[in-house]
């Protein structure tokens, strides 16, 4: 089974994303985190257990406590220690070109997706995950 970490504080968006993923023919385990700090500390604690690490991370930018950018900074430091190659997608409602540009400064970021994310994009992402 494929595993997804969904880091987003917006319950409606998380609900909708879960529905989209449920509607595609791809059994997935989804873990939710409502801010970057909860996600990064969890990732740090399971860093050497490849079977517990996700295949894909969907990361929101605007979140309380630790926002997406702060998460990325810490995640970049953590990534070399993680025993799995994880695809990370920023999923933001922002349409600011500066933010897209800024995300390119992080090698850990696979792509920048602007909400709403279409179902076929999610299918494509999940198809690319090799188990």
């Amino acid at each position: 089974m494929k595993s997804i970490f969904l880091i987003d504080d917006d319950p409606i968006f998380v609900y909708l994303t879960r529905r989209i993923i449920a509607s595609i023919d791809c059994p997935c385990q989804i873990n939710e985190f409502t801010d970057g700090e909860l996600a990064i500390s969890h990732l740090a604690s399971i860093g050497n257990q490849a079977e517990k690490l996700p295949d894909v991370i969907f990361l929101d930018l605007s979140m309380p406590v630790m926002d997406g950018w702060e998460f990325l900074k810490e995640y970049s430091d953590l990534k070399p220690k993680l025993k799995k190659d994880i695809a990370l997608f920023i999923v933001s409602s922002s349409i600011s070109p500066q933010e897209v540009e800024r995300s390119k400064g992080y090698r850990a970021v696979t792509d920048f997706l602007i909400k709403p994310v279409e179902k076929r994009k999610i299918i494509e992402i999940m198809d690319n995950v090799k188990l």
């Binding site: 917006d10 409606i12 930018l61 605007s62 409602s93 922002s94 349409i95 909400k115 709403p116």
Partner: peptide, 10 residues
Amino acid sequence: SHNLRAPLVN
């Protein structure tokens, strides 16, 4: 961009 567009997307 963040706070108004997010609920619109939802």
